[in-house]
Structures are given as C-alpha cells and as structure tokens.
Write a protein that binds this DNA or RNA. Structure first.
Length: 260
DNA sequence: ATGCCTTTCCCAGAAAGA
C-alpha cells in the first residue's frame, strides 16, 4: 500500500500536474494541502476516473486540505477540536481533515505558517499544534495504522534547513516550534525519515531566486506515524521529480510504501 | 534594497506564502 502527502499550492492551478502524478505514482491514499478552493469546488470529476474518492475541507482563497483514496473513504472528520482559530476562535481555517482508508487512518494537516516571531500568527501556530496533539491522541495510541501528515511548517532539526544561519530569529526553526513537534510525537508518533536519494531530504524550495536548483530547501512536509504504521513501512521517499518542469508546486510529495 | 516567484482575489495591486 502506498500513502503520500503533497502541498499542491492550489489544486486548480496544479490540476494537470496532480492528475499526471496520481497516474504515475499511483498512491492508494494522498493527503493534500493548500487546495485553495471552497469545499464543494474541489475538481472531483478530474480524479474519479483514476479511482479516487475525495474528502475535502476547503474555504476558498487560502488553506484547504483533502484526503484522496482509492481503497475506501470513511469516518471523515473536518477541522480540529479545540482549534484556536485566527484571528479569533470565531474564525476557523480549513487546515485539517481525517479519514479512514481501508486498513489505515490518515490526517492531512496544513499547520499555520507563523509569519514572524512577533506576529499573533506565531502564537496561533503553537496553540494549533497543541490542539493537534489532543486531536490525534486516540488514533496515535491505537492498534490501527495511523499517520498525521502534511505541511507542518516546521523544520524538525537544523539538518532540515539548507542554511540555519538564514533562519536566525525566524519561524520554522525555533525551539518552541520544535518542542511542539516533540510533544506531538509523545502521543505515540514517529517522524518517518525519508530515504536519502540525492542530497538533503528537503521537501520545499521557494519559487524565488532559483532556490530549487541551488539546493536552498527545507524539510517541512512530514509523516508522523504511529507504531502500527511505522512497523509496516518498507520505504519513505521524496518525489523531487514533481518539483521540476513546468508549473510545479513549491513543495514535493513525500511517499510512504507500506507492507501491511 | 527586504525583492527575486506564484497564487488568490479579479483586471490592480494587495496579501500570503516560509
């Protein structure tokens, strides 16, 4: 079984690349982030011919997450219990959706960016991660294979950033953000390390300044698996090919192969 | 110099991304 996560940076703008990638990589389950369309505006008709059912949680211009599955799609849960919201609890953003796909359960996440350390968005990011820990606790400690995967907007270690000096006093690398991930793992989750194919295991490269070709990347798209899933992993890899060519997302997919 | 690119809103330029 193959599961994957990919921040597509607009599912409509990425549709040709997404369909081609689904056809080629043939994942059984895919978590998407930054769909940037309303819940009922997901291009379902474009992926059903490939065998996928869709659970989408969108809001329009920003954010938006989905689970695509060709092995069943049940018990869909949109949103996050205890979501702090931004800028307030009355304004909830579409940043997570969970579903059971055959033998596994997955949760697609698009963690808030944080913007800058003195921005209210940064405090929101930390509170959102704390709420996520509570939301995944039962699945993480269960016997069914489970993973929370997506764009965490945190580089877990300095090895996950091309130049840590550039990120001094920036979001994505602070002790508080990394601690929030550690607390999340304490729920019973393991960060699946991507196999090193060529160079560092980055999953994101800024569109600007030729970052991809200069190797200026970060590993911020993560798969956090519980024990039942981690023990079944046969391979974890980053599909750098998807970041090449015409009209790519700025993120590459992370793919996990399972022997269940 | 605080952009360099891409996407959305929708046709002008702002906001956001990380």
């Amino acid at each position: 079984m193959r599961v994957a996560t990919w921040n597509v940076n607009s599912v409509l703008a990425r549709l040709p690349r997404l369909v081609a990638w689904l056809d080629e990589a043939a994942p059984d389950v895919v978590c998407l982030q930054e769909t940037k369309v309303a819940t009922d505006a997901f291009p379902v008709d474009e992926v059903t011919p490939l065998g996928y059912s869709v659970a989408h949680h969108g809001e329009g211009r920003w954010n938006g997450v989905a689970v695509l599955s060709r092995v069943g799609l049940e018990d869909v849960v949109r949103g996050l219990p205890g979501d702090p919201g931004f800028p307030d609890a009355q304004t909830l953003e579409a940043r997570t959706v969970a579903a059971t796909c055959g033998p596994v359960r997955v949760r697609s996440v698009y963690v808030p960016n944080g913007r800058t350390l003195d921005d209210p968005h940064y405090a929101y990011k930390l509170r959102w991660l704390a709420a996520l820990r509570e939301a995944v606790a039962a699945d993480a400690s269960g016997s069914r294979p489970f993973a929370v995967m997506g764009d965490f907007n945190v580089a877990p270690t300095d090895e996950d950033v091309w130049d840590p000096a550039v990120f001094v006093d920036s979001t994505h690398v602070t002790p508080a953000e990394r601690s929030a991930l550690a607390v999340l793992r304490e729920a019973g989750l393991t960060d699946l390390p991507p196999r090193i194919a060529k160079g560092p295991p980055y999953t994101y490269w800024d569109y600007r300044a030729g970052s991809f070709h200069k190797g200026m990347g970060m590993r911020i798209d993560l798969v956090y698996a519980n024990a039942a899933m981690a023990s079944a992993v046969s391979d974890t890899w980053i599909d750098r090919e998807a970041r090449k060519g015409t009209g790519p997302s700025d993120h590459a997919p992370v793919v996990v192969d399972l022997d269940l």
